[in-house]
Design a protein around this nucleic acid. Structure first.
Length: 547
DNA sequence: AAAGCCCACAACCGCTCCCGA
DNA sequence: ATCGGGAGCGGTTGTGGGCTT
């Protein structure tokens, strides 16, 4: 069918081309009147493109239209060449070996299709992407985990290995992957051992925009003396990637307690890097918050309207078909309500703000960007006005604003590659992270004024502001430890439990791992109880703190 | 046989980065 | 320092084929 259509177009193409070419040339090369063709490529077009590339080589794709008379935009030409016409392309189904490799690569890289394709000669990123998306759907339907356990474990071990073999100060060229966790790891452990911090879980929805605002604002390493790597990954935060996040089948009714872990470690971390404690910049800040990387399985959507809030959080083919009404034994979803409330009822903010455009029907990210704007402009308003607000949004904003101080850590540890990198928020709200409006908010200012006041009014738990300045560090927890299947298997098979506990031990120390074990097997008698909760409808972001 | 659904694939779109003027 | 074009990347959509009912 498609072939027939193309053949018909082949026959028609020369005339069209001639006419367009004449128009093009007659207008002095102006593209304004040239209607570029879309849709499937014809063999004639392919021939033209191949001939052009043979003659001129790759690149300068926009010149193809001008010089070869191909009525295709440069992007289309490049794509056609890269995906179909260039030599050495391997066509046909993926081999088992390739599939295995893709799985492993995705576990490590996430949706970095181009990078993955570099490991698969003859395969294009588009091919891999399509394969992965269909694979995800298949496995979701089959109720299979996205990654085989051995792949998860391998990635975990590799991550651990990379952390242990590469220190933060190992050189200027330390890759971001390597920078990812080493020091922060120690800091976390130390902090968790030293700080029997009181940090009950408070199910507050994260303010992603504020968080990204924080990240953006602190990009100048305000609080950080060492320079982060110049990894491309660092620059390109668009890729929403969350390796190890479970597929739909696993995430239904799953309580992922450790996806994100919050630790009162900011001071430790800051000190470990020779940084000034960011807490010096502001009043006491609590850690009772969590951050949802709302797009647990790696895709983000930036264009869906607000009315599709659910789809916003679960866009794309990789999204689970979550029963939104069932949360099993997980904590009640105030977060969800709140987030949804924010999506649905931005009115309080918009009523408060006059110089920001309302998100209204423009989608979650728009709403978040809007919220960031609002946050910025909220500085213009007196504190009473804000503190009197009872909206959850403001609560969230206040909470999340406290994270501004930790941006350095996030920024420098953010690693799209490592399963343990703090990538999720960065990657999953790229539009926000790059929103111009966010640049307007100096991070330090965020700590002052209204937001802080607001926080003091709304926070559920307040640390000792003098000596026990609490802070938050979220760690992206590998879902290998969170997988529903694993949890389910615990009752009759201790193997996975052991693996997870070992992993916990590696990451947090034996005592905490023991706590974790007790918690998961329901035998917790420890006086130290893990508090955790869900942060978003996608079930993937949870906070953990010791209470 | 027809309709509906699902799947795989190709292509497009929006965004970002890079680089040269 | 700024701007604009080129290029690349990742997400999304459109379409045709195959299968099922």
């Amino acid at each position: 069918m498609r072939r027939m259509k193309n053949e018909i177009e082949d026959e028609m193409l020369p005339n069209n081309m001639t006419e367009s070419q004449l128009n093009d040339e007659g207008n002095g090369g102006s593209d304004s009147k040239v209607v570029l063709k879309k849709g499937p490529w014809t063999s004639a077009e392919d021939a033209i493109l191949v001939g052009y590339v043979k003659k001129h080589g790759e690149g300068n794709w926009n010149a193809v239209q001008k010089h070869a008379g191909l009525l295709r935009c440069g992007k289309s030409c490049r794509l056609r060449w890269a995906n179909h016409l260039r030599p050495n392309l391997k066509k046909g189904a993926f081999t088992a070996q390739e599939e295995r490799l893709i799985t492993e690569l995705h576990a490590k890289m996430g949706n970095k299709w181009a990078r993955m394709s570099a490991h698969l000669p003859g395969r294009t990123d588009n091919e891999i992407k399509n394969y992965w998306n269909t694979r995800i759907k298949r496995r979701q339907r089959a109720g299979l985990p996205l990654y085989p356990p051995e792949v998860c474990l391998q990635a975990f071990q590799e991550s651990q290995q990379s952390q242990s073999t590469c220190g933060v100060n190992g050189g200027n060229k330390v890759h971001h992957d390597m920078l990812n966790s080493y020091e922060i790891h120690d800091a976390i452990i130390d902090s968790m051992k030293d700080n029997q911090g009181i940090s009950p879980y408070v199910p507050e929805p994260p303010d992603i925009s504020d968080y990204n605002n924080m990240l953006k604002g602190l990009d100048s390493s305000q609080y950080c003396n060492f320079t982060s790597s110049t990894s491309p990954n660092h620059k390109r935060l668009r890729g929403s990637t969350m390796p190890f996040l479970g597929s739909s089948g696993m995430s239904r009714n799953v309580f992922y307690p450790f996806d994100h872990i919050q630790v009162n470690a900011c001071d430790k971390i800051a000190q470990s890097f020779g940084m000034q404690s960011p807490l010096d910049h502001g009043p006491s800040l609590h850690s009772s918050m969590c951050y949802s990387h709302s797009l647990s399985n790696g895709n983000s959507s930036t264009s869906k309207p607000t009315s599709e809030a659910v789809k916003l959080e679960l866009p794309s083919l990789q999204y689970p078909e979550i029963d939104l009404g069932s949360w099993g034994t997980s904590p009640p979803p105030p977060l969800l309500d709140s987030v949804d409330d924010f999506i649905k009822y931005p009115t309080p903010i918009s009523a408060m703000e006059s110089d920001c455009s309302s998100p209204q029907n423009s989608g979650l990210l728009d709403a978040l960007v809007y919220q960031a704007k609002t946050m910025s402009s909220s500085k213009k308003h007196n504190s009473d006005e804000i503190s009197n607000s009872s909206t959850a949004i403001l609560d969230h904003r206040a909470d999340s604003s406290t994270l501004n101080m930790h941006e350095t850590e996030w920024e420098d540890y953010a690693d799209p590659v490592s399963p343990f990198g703090a990538t999720s928020i960065l990657n999953e709200c790229p539009a926000i992270a790059n929103a111009n409006s966010l640049d307007e908010v100096p991070p330090d200012q965020t700590f002052n004024g209204n937001i802080v006041k607001l926080e003091s009014a709304d926070q559920v738990w307040t640390p000792n502001s003098e000596n026990q300045t609490m802070s938050v560090l979220n760690i992206t927890w590998p879902d290998i430890l969170l997988d529903e299947d694993w949890l389910q298997q615990d009752s009759d098979n201790g193997t996975n439990q052991t693996i997870r506990t070992d992993a916990m031990s590696t990451l947090f120390g034996d005592d905490l791992a023991t706590d974790y074990k007790h918690m998961t097997d329901g035998t917790s008698k420890s006086s130290q109880v893990w508090g955790f909760g869900s942060c978003a409808r996608n079930h993937s972001a949870f906070c953990l703190s010791r209470v």
